[in-house]
């Protein structure tokens, strides 16, 4: 739509070399995009649509706004109860309380490091295998591809996977949270499809110039695939940041827990965070509910930070591009 409007007021070069400025015509905004054959919906229909969309959007947004508001509220306001959509006396008490060091701070550090290292390892394994399987005519690569497809169909099961990690001596270590999920077969296929759609002429030309396959991957394939790699990396990163169940399975030591598990312990199971953290002795601790909500917010913020980048690519069809229509 933006491009269409730009064109309307743009200058069109004429044959004479000068340019003809077309003044923008004032139009009703709402029919700018409507196909010529589509009638304007009736007022009732419009109202119904508006209500439905507002309802859906509100349902999605409301809990998040509420939680953020409570996390910034002071003890008095929370205890008074009622509708808090904007903190009446905004305070950072809860955040400073949990960020003083202690359980949540440590959990956030663990989660950040796990996500960074884990995503890097996943990307290396996924990209190399995807590239290795992307070229037709490599002897044996079809067989490996079938192994990958088999992994999409059959899930080995929780107990054998656990016993493997146990036998490898990885219980209660951080690699146990990264290694079992190094490659997602779905992500691998998306990346491989993208690689395969890069014109072979480009790589052939490099080959003739004497480039090795490693150089082709590094110099040609990867720079051309930035968009899809960004999306896959963000998928992986969000997956590790959000992982909860693997931690339950593989990490017994609660001092090693990342943020999701700590969040569950204090927010869903109701363990008292105030007693777990050290507060200044003669100072009333912030209300438990605000602290809990501050943990929820802190566990969500990284997702909210990467989300706009992700969002940009969804609509561009990076992912749906791999789905032939």
């Amino acid at each position: 739509m933006a491009t269409i409007r730009e064109e309307r007021s743009s200058t069109i070069p004429s044959l004479g070399g000068g340019s003809l400025v077309i003044p923008e015509v004032k139009r009703k905004r709402r029919d700018s995009n409507r196909p010529i054959w589509m009638e304007e919906p009736g007022p009732l229909m419009k109202i119904a649509k508006a209500i439905a969309l507002t309802f859906v959007t509100l349902i999605m947004v409301f809990p998040m706004v509420y939680v953020v508001a409570v996390s910034f509220s002071s003890a008095k306001d929370v205890l008074a109860g009622g509708l808090i959509l904007f903190p009446r006396n905004p305070t950072l008490e809860s955040y400073s309380a949990i960020l003083q060091g202690g359980v949540v701070t440590r959990a956030l550090q663990i989660s950040i490091l796990l996500t960074l290292f884990g995503t890097f390892a996943q990307m290396v394994f996924t990209v190399t295998l995807a590239y290795g399987l992307s070229r037709p005519g490599v002897w044996g690569s079809k067989f490996v591809l079938y192994l990958v497809l088999g992994a999409m169909i059959f899930y080995p099961g929780m107990i054998p996977s656990f016993l493997l990690i146990k036998e490898l001596g990885l219980l209660n270590t951080y690699p146990a949270l990264i290694v079992p999920g190094l490659i997602s077969a779905w992500n691998l296929i998306i990346v491989r499809n993208f690689f395969m759609n890069i014109p072979a002429d480009l790589t052939d030309a490099a080959k003739i110039d004497g480039a090795s396959d490693a150089q082709i991957l590094w110099r040609i394939i990867l720079p051309l695939s930035k968009a899809v790699l960004a999306v896959i990396a963000l998928f992986y990163g969000v997956g590790i940041w959000n992982q909860f169940f693997n931690v339950i399975l593989y990490i017994n030591d609660s001092t090693m827990w990342p943020v999701q598990n700590v969040l569950r312990q204090y927010v869903l199971m109701g363990s008292n965070l105030a007693s777990a953290d050290q507060f200044a002795p003669n100072q009333a601790p912030p209300p438990a509910q605000s602290i809990q909500m501050a943990v929820v917010v802190l566990a969500t913020v990284p997702i909210l930070i990467v989300y706009p980048f992700l969002q940009r690519y969804f609509t561009k069809g990076v992912l749906t591009g791999s789905i032939k229509g």
Binding site: T126, L129, V138, V144, P160, L163, L188
Partner: peptide, 19 residues
């Protein structure tokens, strides 16, 4: 390039299936 990924699938998917 194929080797690390293949090792991953054999060790962490197919070995547990046998398990």
């Amino acid at each position: 390039f194929i080797l690390p990924g293949l090792a991953y699938f054999l060790l962490f998917i197919y070995l547990p299936i046998l398990g």
